[in-house]
């Protein structure tokens, strides 16, 4: 049975985000011949729509109103509601982002249905949509079906593969109304940028956890990242370490922090609580350095060293420097 899908897309510097492309891909796989509509809001939305068609979208609803650039849920909700009216979706997909976290439950509420958050797996099981999401801080996975329609789901970044781009594909576009009122007023915005490389973009992430024992431990972690290369490696931290004030919260990797999927993830003195693994389990290779051979992190790691990081990191830094 065909399924109409509505993807709430997001823009980054005038282009659809990579997660938007992934969602459109997932949508087109689940549509089974139904329409795959995407909404794009904000400056450059209309132009950006073209990039969604090769990714699997068949319709694009856009508004170039720059008032949408900053997410205000009241305004976005109104716009998505208009698109919803036009697309009559059976499934609404959003990213598990600032936008999706707030918009998905609100949209679902207004249509007497439910939103499933932070899904990592979407499947059509004999015509029934089943979504799977990590629960209990990632200790378990739970699969849900929807008793109501339409289904609303937010999806974890990088959990869905984009489809093979359909060269030259195009689709309909339609204009959404300009932004209306919002009850919450945005007063200010502060970007906290890690020096140099961004955590999500880094091909290598070196993270430290509570096992470092003190904020000083991060000096060695930073040294290791520097040895790998300032242009290649960024430094992250577990929530426990951030909560203790040992490292800035902007560098937190985990369920409530950033989700990273680098080629190489080096976890130093991190026990590997599921809540942390939720933020790094998509990494291609994980290396664990931990005193405790029973630490959970070794279950997800490909390589491990059992030992005190204070003894392991200095020679490791030296060996990496020598190898470069």
């Amino acid at each position: 049975m065909p399924r109409n899908v509505l993807v709430v897309g997001e823009l980054s510097e005038g282009a659809p985000t990579s997660t938007t492309i992934e969602l459109v891909g997932a949508g087109s796989r689940l549509a089974g011949g139904g329409t795959v509509a995407v909404t794009l809001l904000g400056n450059g939305a209309a132009a950006a729509a073209a990039a969604t068609f090769p990714a699997g979208a068949t319709k694009a609803f856009t508004s170039d109103d720059a008032n949408y650039d900053q997410f205000r849920s009241d305004q976005w909700l109104a716009a998505v509601e208009s698109a919803f009216g036009l697309a009559s979706p059976d499934l609404v997909l959003m990213a598990q982002s600032l936008v999706g976290r707030e918009l998905a439950p609100r949209l679902a509420f207004r249509h007497n249905t439910a939103a499933a958050m932070d899904c990592v797996h979407l499947a059509d099981d004999g015509g029934t949509l089943k979504v799977t999401r990590p629960v209990y801080g990632g200790n378990a996975l739970a699969t849900f079906s929807f008793a109501t329609s339409p289904a609303v789901a937010t999806v974890r970044a990088k959990s869905q593969d984009p489809i093979e781009p359909k060269a030259g594909a195009s689709g309909e576009t339609a204009e959404l109304p300009a932004a209306g009122e919002a009850r919450a007023a945005i007063i200010g915005r502060e970007k906290v940028e890690a020096e140099g490389l961004q955590l999500q973009d880094a091909p290598v992430v070196v993270s430290g956890g509570r096992g470092l024992g003190s904020p000083d431990g991060f000096k060695l972690v930073e040294e290791l990242a520097a040895a790998i290369g300032k242009d290649k490696a960024a430094v992250g931290a577990s929530r426990a370490a951030c909560d203790l004030g040992w490292y800035p919260p902007s560098q937190q990797v985990g369920l409530t922090g950033k989700v990273v999927t680098p080629d190489l993830y080096i976890a130093v003195a991190i026990s590997g609580a599921s809540q942390h693994m939720a933020g790094c389990s998509g990494s291609k290779t994980i290396i664990a350095i931990n005193k405790d051979p029973e630490a959970n992190i070794f279950k997800s790691a490909r390589f491990g060293i059992v030992g005190d990081y204070r003894q392991v990191l200095p020679p490791l830094i030296a060996a990496i420097k020598a190898a470069r």
Binding site: T113, A114, A116, K130, V135, N139, A140, L141, A142, T143, F144, S145, F146, A147, T148, I286, A288, P293, F298, K299, S300, A301, R302, F303, G304, I305, V306, G307, D308, Q311, V312, P315
Partner: peptide
């Protein structure tokens, strides 16, 4: 409930990491 729990399970972990077995750190 509008969301029906179909299955709750513990994901299989890939198993154990390859631990470096040389003598010293």
């Amino acid at each position: 409930a509008r969301l029906k729990l179909e299955r709750l399970y513990i994901p299989e972990k890939e198993g154990k990491a390859e631990i470096m077995d040389a003598e010293t750190p």
